[in-house]
Computed example of a mutant assay.
Amino acid sequence: MLLLLLVSFAGCGSQQNTSQGSGTASQEHFAVIHDAMGRDVVLAKKPERIVVTSASFLEPLHEVGGDVVGRPDSKTKMPDYAKDKMSVGKVYQIDVEKVLACEPDLVIVNKGMNEKLVNTLEENGIKTVVLDMKSYDDVKDEIRAMAKITGEEQKGEDLIASMNQKIADIKAKIPADKHRVSIIHSTNQGLTIQLDGSIAGCTAKMLGWDNVASGMTPLEKNPDAAPYSMETLVEQNPEVIFVTSMGKIEEAKAGMDKTMQENPAWQTVEAVKNGRVYYLPQDLFLLSPGIHYPEAVETMAKCLYPEALTK
């Protein structure tokens, strides 16, 4: 019996040591990031040389104590701290050789544009984290991931709390009315309808407004948009129309005015009859607003309630 008891205690001691060993090993990692590709990316130590493939990552990363050695070109999203950093090409044409020349220990990749870089970078021994940033929830996830990367998780939570409060303050200033809205995206190739997953769709939803296109079948290559149909728009009869377009708002308005004049069916839509067609800036509604999501919410809300939100 004594011998059996000794063996039993020895076994428990062995299992406990194994468990403690596993705990110690896990604590050796600096951070584990669950990214937008569903991967758990293990960072053995704090990254010291970071490259980002989207300029929209620069501000949130900086807000949680991060810096970069390389970034893409951008005419609208370049904070002062990053202007002199090495360029790795245009966001749609990232130059892998330039990325490698930065000698990064981490590359933050933009989902939907640059995932093709992941395999090449990983084969060269460079860690990658893929982040999405369309919806407000995406942006909050992005901030939390970046705060883990920099080891400043409290800064991330403080930033999110500040953004939440700003949005709550904006909503408190306007009536809690429901509005039936349609969001049209205008390009040289024609028109599409923006769904809830788009930035403008997400913003309208945050304001409590109903996107008349919710539930429509998305385009095969764009899950955030649906095909435009004049017949469907007339049937949906939105009371408000928002228009997004790359380029200058004046040019988009001129193009849409021509389209509306050429087809009398537009004049039967409530939003058009009542002059409630509004044009949204590309830097907040086509490029990710990032930490400026409260500004996007305010911009959309101000279209309908300018007096309530005029400082």
Rank of each mutant, 00 (worst) to 15 (best):
L3G: 00
L3N: 00
F9M: 02
G13I: 09
Q15T: 13
N17Q: 14
S19D: 05
Q20L: 15
S22G: 06
T24C: 09
A25V: 14
V32H: 00
A36P: 14
G38D: 02
R39C: 08
K45M: 15
R49Y: 11
V52K: 02
S54L: 12
A55L: 05
L58C: 06
H62M: 07
G65L: 13
R71K: 03
P72I: 14
P79V: 00
Y81T: 13
A82Q: 03
A82R: 04
G89V: 06
G89M: 07
V91G: 07
Y92N: 13
D95W: 05
C102H: 07
C102T: 12
D105M: 01
D105E: 01
L106M: 03
I108E: 01
K111M: 02
L117Y: 02
N119P: 02
N119C: 01
K134C: 03
Y136H: 14
D137P: 12
D138F: 10
D138H: 09
A145E: 08
M146P: 08
A147L: 02
K148F: 08
T150K: 06
T150V: 06
K155C: 05
K155L: 08
L159P: 03
I160S: 02
A161C: 07
M163C: 02
A168G: 10
I170T: 14
A172W: 09
K173L: 10
P175F: 11
A176S: 09
V181Y: 08
I184S: 02
I184A: 04
I184Q: 01
G197M: 13
T203S: 15
G208C: 03
G208P: 04
G208N: 04
D210N: 06
D210F: 10
N211R: 13
V212L: 03
V212Y: 07
G215M: 04
P218A: 08
K221V: 11
A226Q: 02
P227H: 01
Y228S: 01
Q236K: 11
N237T: 15
P238Y: 12
E239T: 15
V243T: 14
M246N: 14
G247T: 07
E251K: 15
E251S: 15
M256H: 08
A265V: 06
A265N: 00
W266N: 12
T268M: 09
T268Q: 12
V269L: 11
K273R: 04
G275L: 03
Y279D: 07
Y279H: 12
Y279F: 11
Y279N: 12
L280R: 04
D283Q: 02
L284Y: 10
F285V: 11
G290S: 04
P294A: 00
P294R: 00
E295K: 13
T299N: 02
M300C: 11
M300D: 05
A301Y: 06
A301M: 06
P306T: 00
E307F: 08
L309K: 03
